[in-house]
Write a protein that binds this DNA or RNA. Structure first.
Length: 524
DNA sequence: TGACCAAGCGCC
DNA sequence: AAAGGGCGCTTGGTCA
């Protein structure tokens, strides 16, 4: 049973009750939250929640109208229509529908917030539309998990991930040389660039694909691309320094000093997360590149004195999700083991590696190498799982929509795709979309499991423990040392609860191994 | 000059 | 070792 309380601007309105115009809305929220914890409904967590966090107010549950509208529109085959609460309200009243604005927090031209009555109206409409779906229970869970994700995302941006600028600077200095002055290359990077130039006998900018291709051509080497794995096949003295250059140059420009100046404050890395930013339901980032931190940088993430980092990732999440969704008994039995691929090895000639290739090929639409032979085995041994992803691929090839377990819906085919598919290269376009929808059902459901885990875990954490990182199937909690055991236990509990919420009683296990470490680099 | 694209590579 | 689905982000380079 949910109790909804509307928040907009300075109004806090219990549904069915009378509006309170609070001069101090944060206090009003704090007060109502303490008295039992309603489900707050608001137009957009990104606008409403950060100011509350600034005032030390956190809430347990919310219903984010914009995220919910996006999920509903996609399910209704109206993917891409404006999803803001304002747009939803306009549609209800046959008024002109405003385009979605980029996150307007803090801009001068932020429009007046939607009135409380309008917010309540949009909520009622959404709840009605959810009840009309074929699986309202699952979709309600999706909405709750997505909204909880929005709370976590805002909190993680606010709290930040521990980031030692001293360790970062030492690492960069070690690899690149001291921080250079304005526009210069770091010494070690410049030395490698000079080596490349020397190897060719003339000036070559290693950042320029064109110059590199031309230089190699001049040396008698025809390149298809300058990708590292392509270069590794080439025998030329420029290759070694060039490969070293590319690796370090990326570190320098993506996660170097300039990046740290912009994104690290007070020993915390504060990226911006975009909940549901990937069509499959995975999160994206809109700044800071939090989901692409190179592994070498993990040593920079260090717990505060007297605190620890509890790091946990779900093992082989996607094949487990497939086993549970497809109800494939054989695969589910293997997924009852800690190492799913080892458990499958027997079916694939005793080779764990073969089992892995077969599973990945089934989920991603792989065709290369041994894939087709292994897929034939998969089809025979695990027919339900095989058929499940085949059906998703077929739907995609035919231009139909597919949905995740809880009801997140794939984008429809574009107009361009429809043209292509009836043209001479149509087969290629169809297969490409088939691979996408094949992967969508698995990746999307895995994202839902992870979101459910995140939501449950958040509710189990003791004060002052904080979630500080979430990356697809991995979470990190920063907590005092003496809470480590409790937090590790909470992770296990949350994983079990996420599995139960999505799949009820299933033989499939979802192992989530958590370790407490002083430094992220020590987690693996 | 700014807008946009492609290449390339980091993460899952 | 990669395969292969999804992203973000930076650089160089082109075009209006």
């Amino acid at each position: 049973m949910c109790v909804y309380v509307v928040v907009t601007g300075e109004t806090v309105l219990p549904i069915g009750g009378s509006a309170r115009h609070a001069a101090d809305p944060a206090s009003a929220v704090r007060e109502l939250e303490a008295g039992g914890g309603p489900r707050w409904v608001w137009a957009d967590t990104r606008e409403t929640y950060p100011p509350l966090l600034e005032q030390g107010v956190r809430v347990a549950r919310c219903h984010d109208l914009a995220l919910t509208e996006g999920l509903l529109l996609a399910h209704e085959g109206r993917y891409g229509e404006p999803r803001s609460a304002r747009a939803a309200h306009a549609r209800l009243h046959g008024l002109p529908v405003p385009d979605d604005q980029p996150n307007v927090t803090g801009t001068l031209f932020a429009p007046e917030p939607l009135g409380a009555e309008a917010v309540a109206e949009v909520l009622a409409d959404q709840l009605r539309r959810i009840e009309a779906l074929p699986e309202p229970g699952r979709f309600r869970l999706l909405v709750a998990a997505e909204s909880a994700g929005a709370l976590v995302a805002a909190e993680m941006s606010y709290d930040g991930m521990p980031w030692s600028r001293d360790v970062h600077d030492a690492l960069l200095t070690d690899l690149l040389g001291p921080r250079p002055v304005h526009g210069m290359r770091p010494a070690k990077l410049q030395a490698l660039a000079d080596e490349v130039t020397a190897a060719f006998g003339h000036q070559v900018n290693p950042d320029s694909v064109q110059q590199l291709v031309k230089a190699f051509k001049g040396a008698g080497v025809a390149l298809k691309s300058t990708r590292s794995w392509e270069l590794k096949k080439v025998d030329h003295p420029a290759v070694a320094p060039l490969l070293a250059y590319k690796e370090l140059a990326r570190l320098y420009s993506f996660h170097g000093w300039v990046w740290a100046d912009q994104w690290v404050r007070g020993g915390r890395f504060r990226p911006e997360y975009v909940v549901g930013g990937v069509v499959s339901g995975r999160w994206a980032t809109s700044g800071g590149g939090a989901l692409q931190i190179p592994k070498v940088m993990r040593r920079v993430v260090v717990a505060d004195e007297g605190w620890t980092l509890v790091v946990a990732d779900a093992a082989q999440l996607e094949p487990r999700v497939l086993a549970a969704m497809a109800g494939d008994r054989g695969l589910a039995r293997a997924a009852g083991e800690i190492d799913l691929y080892s458990a499958l090895a027997q079916s694939f000639g005793g080779e764990r590696e073969n089992a892995k290739i077969a599973m990945l090929s089934a989920m991603y639409g792989g065709t290369s190498g041994d894939a087709s032979k292994l897929l034939a085995v998969m089809r025979q041994r695990f027919p339900q799982a095989y058929q499940f992803v085949e059906d998703a691929a077929k739907a995609g090839e035919e231009g139909r929509l597919v949905r995740s377990w809880l009801g997140r819906t794939s984008p429809p085919p574009s107009g361009r795709w429809k043209e292509l598919v009836s043209g001479p290269e149509g087969g290629r376009a169809a297969r490409d979309r088939g691979r996408f929808t094949r992967n969508f059902v698995v990746q999307g459901t895995a994202a839902e499991w992870a979101l459910a885990l995140l939501a449950v875990l958040r509710g189990l954490l003791p004060e002052p423990a904080r979630l500080v990182f979430f990356q697809h199937d991995e979470v990190m909690v920063h907590c005092p040392l003496d809470q480590a055991e409790q937090v590790i236990g909470a992770v296990t509990t949350a994983a079990a609860e996420a599995s139960r919420l999505l799949f009820g009683s299933t033989p499939v296990r979802f192992p989530m191994e958590a370790v407490a470490v002083g430094c992220y680099a020590d987690a693996k």
